[in-house]
Amino acid sequence: MKKYEILDHKADLKIRVFGKTKKELFFNALLAMVENLEPEYSSSENPKKMKARKINLKSESLETLLVEFLSEVLYLSQVNKEIYLKARFDKFTDNEIEAQIFGKKVKRFNKDIKAVTYHNLNIFFRENGQWEATILFDI
């Protein structure tokens, strides 16, 4: 199953994300975002060394929760110069997340994502049994 695909947009980064569950959708959205930061790893760092970061969020809807989750990951990525490729959700509802994400140190990003937008964001369940969301990132 495809985790995500990049759609055409004139100025920004538009990504359609898929997941068998809402949790998987959130994680694939995270992957889509961090992979598009195009990280370059430092050769001096131990590639197996992962640092855990905590995320606790409450929001009014599943859509706003997704944007705020990704915004939090983006913030952590940029201030810690880390890329998160693993996540553990300790609590996951339509309005609340308690998670730990695990990150590797990077030397640099080759791309910048300025922010995660709420633009036209809808999360829905397809007849094929998949969750789907289209997210626009300001780059």
Partner: peptide, 27 residues
């Protein structure tokens, strides 16, 4: 600056209803 905008969108989205404002999109 990017964070300031994100922070205030997060603050304002729940307030749209409170002030009875209709917007075409959350953004």
């Amino acid at each position: 600056g990017h964070q300031v905008c994100s922070d205030y969108l997060k603050i304002m989205i729940p307030l749209i209803k409170k002030y009875g404002i209709e917007v075409p999109d959350r953004e």
